[in-house]
């Protein structure tokens, strides 16, 4: 396996306090429907945080707020100390310009439920596109690194394939490689295995486990209780737009304190 291109954490210089992600009283409404009603959350560097909850609980929406794909109505989110999407001046929040939002997003990778690969580009082009377009790397260097990343997710023999010629599991692994190509500090996974045939779920989870072992900070919206228990450092259970309870996955799953958590776990386990 080629070496991973994420910033090394294990054994690195002692992390200076400050969480990788901090959310404070995040509110979000779509029209008159309030989807998030005051979310508080902290994710430390190198931690894997699994967001669990029934559909409509707001977990995907919250994830999309972290890289400003959704604008929040109230509250604040910081990633690695930077306030996301807004600039604070004289106690007032001003929305950032598109250019600055884009720059912030470059440090945050995202993987979608429906993969969203670019269908008119090969796997290799999908991965190499953004670094080249943003002038980070020369074309040849970006291609080499893209090939190494695809090799790493087990797709070294599919570089020239278009997304339409790949299985769902393979497409999702390309999508992970594409996000990693930007060398993010944080990875967001929005139900990465929900659109997959059951027999393809494992190959994607394996790549994610591998990534977690290498110290990547990850927030994962998932229904895979097994993954949360095995890989997650924290489990956050959401319902009705609020965090109902959170803690060490093994403990929350074995002894949920809240009735709503109990009811949900009873259904999915």
């Amino acid at each position: 396996m080629t070496e991973l291109t994420v910033p090394a954490r294990a054994g690195g210089p002692a992390e200076e306090a400050g969480p990788m992600v901090r959310a404070e009283q995040v509110h979000k409404s779509f029209g008159s429907i309030e989807v998030l009603r005051g979310i508080d959350l902290e994710v430390r560097s190198g931690e894997v945080c699994c967001l669990l909850g029934p559909s409509g609980s707001g977990k995907s929406t919250f994830l999309r707020c972290i890289n400003h794909l959704e604008k929040i109505n109230a509250g604040r989110i910081w990633v690695d100390g930077d306030l996301i999407g807004y600039r604070e001046r004289g106690g007032k929040l001003h929305e950032m310009r598109e250019k600055d939002v884009a720059a912030q997003r470059r440090t945050i990778g995202m993987v979608f439920q429906r993969f969203n690969l670019f269908p008119h580009m090969t796997a290799l082009q999908n991965v190499a596109e953004a670094p080249v377009l943003l002038g980070r790397e020369k074309k040849a260097a970006a291609r080499d690194r893209a090939a190494a990343l695809l090799e790493r997710v087990g797709l070294g023999d599919k570089l020239g394939n278009y997304p339409g010629q790949l299985s769902g599991g393979q497409q999702q692994r390309v999508a992970i490689a594409r996000a990693l190509a930007m060398q993010p500090k944080l990875m967001l996974f929005d139900e990465p295995t929900s659109a997959l045939d059951p027999e393809l779920v494992g190959e994607v989870l394996d790549v994610m486990k591998d990534l977690a072992r290498d110290g990547m900070t990850m927030i994962v919206v998932t229904h895979e209780i097994g993954f949360a228990r095995e890989v997650g450092d924290t489990l956050v259970f959401m319902d009705g737009g609020v965090v109902v309870e959170s803690g060490v996955p093994r403990e929350v799953i074995a002894k949920p304190r809240h009735d709503r958590t109990k009811a949900f776990l009873a259904k999915v386990l």
Partner: peptide, 21 residues
């Protein structure tokens, strides 16, 4: 598909790039 724009935005691409590429 809207997801194409979102994926490109999540990578940190700018509006012009997303439209063109």
């Amino acid at each position: 598909d809207e997801g194409q724009t979102e994926a490109a935005q999540a990578l940190g691409l700018r509006r012009g790039h997303i439209l063109r590429r």
